[in-house]
Each structure stands twice: as structure tokens, then as C-alpha cells.
Design a protein around this nucleic acid. Sequence first.
DNA 1: AAGATATGTCAAATACTTTTGACATTTTGT
DNA 2: ACAAAATGTCAAAAGTATTTGACATATCTT
Lengths: 71, 71
Amino acid sequence: MKNRIREMRKAIGLSQEDLASGCDVSRQTINAIENNKYDPSLLLAFRLAEQLRCRVDELFIYQDNPEAQQD
Amino acid sequence: MKNRIREMRKAIGLSQEDLASGCDVSRQTINAIENNKYDPSLLLAFRLAEQLRCRVDELFIYQDNPEAQQD
DNA sequence: AAGATATGTCAAATACTTTTGACATTTTGT
DNA sequence: ACAAAATGTCAAAAGTATTTGACATATCTT
């Protein structure tokens, strides 16, 4: 699933490290999610949206190609 | 994290099985999430919101007791 | 009361998310 | 050009989500 984390993080002027500590996760986790290695847990998605001052559905772009597995 | 899945599912008149097949997951998964055994993945959260015709942030109640682990 | 449908729950297996530590590469500031 | 800060990436381990199959209990319908 695509996301706008990098875009919104930079708009606020945060580093990956800043965002990581704000969400109480590691920097590698933020990096992996920005680079679409995997999707965050629902809890982390909410924390990210909170830190980036938007809603979960504004931060993540849900486009389900029906019945296919996501990358 | 609490959620309103059961409430909204019943409002639409779906069984756990109906919702499960609409989201392409097992009935047990829906049951476990409704009974707060664990949180769904972000992808499943979006599918649930889609099936229940609401937004992710309307379906799940995010209340982070700062820096504590969720149940 | 009987049968059908719906829900709760368990255990074991598999897949996915996150962590830590480490090191390489890229970008920024002076 | 140099140093510092930021980002990319890897591997191994731990934690979390989901599946299947099975069986129990509850709730609805006739």
C-alpha cells in the first residue's frame, strides 16, 4: 500500500529519526515503511497519522486490486 | 485498540462469515478482532472500513496511553 | 424440540511486522 | 573538501496477525 509519509514528514521538517521517536519505533521501521518494504501495524498507522497531523486514510492510499495480495 | 466492527456489522445486517468473505479473510479472524484478541493489519482495517462503509478512523478508536503497550 | 445458522474458542503452522546492531551511501552545512 | 547528519540496507531474533480444522455453545426458525 502506498503512503505519503515521506512527503508529509518533510513538510513538517522532521527526520526519519524524529518521526521514529515520536511514534516510539525504530528509525529502520520508519525507513522500511517509507520505502514500501511492508505496511505498518494499525497502531503504528494511527501514531504516524497523529505525528503527521492527518488522518490514517489521508496518509495511506488504499487501492485494493480485488482479491490480489499486496506488495 | 477498541473498534465498532460488531456494531456496524450488525447495523448492515451481516454475519461474521459475510464480513469475512467480503474482506477475504477467515471467520475466525473477524471474530478475534471483534473480541479484541488482536488488531487487524492495516490492509484489513481498510477492507473492513470499505465493507462497513466508513473510514478507518471511524471504525477504530485510537487512544494511545502514551508509551504503554496496547492489549 | 429439533435443525439450522451464528458465534466463541483452541492449537499449530505460516506469514508479516518490528527490533537491534552494524555498516554503506547520500545529502547538508561550513 | 571535509565533517556531520540523514538515509539505505542487511541479517537474525522476537513479537504479532492470519489460517485451517475442529468442536462447543448460543441464537434463531419452524
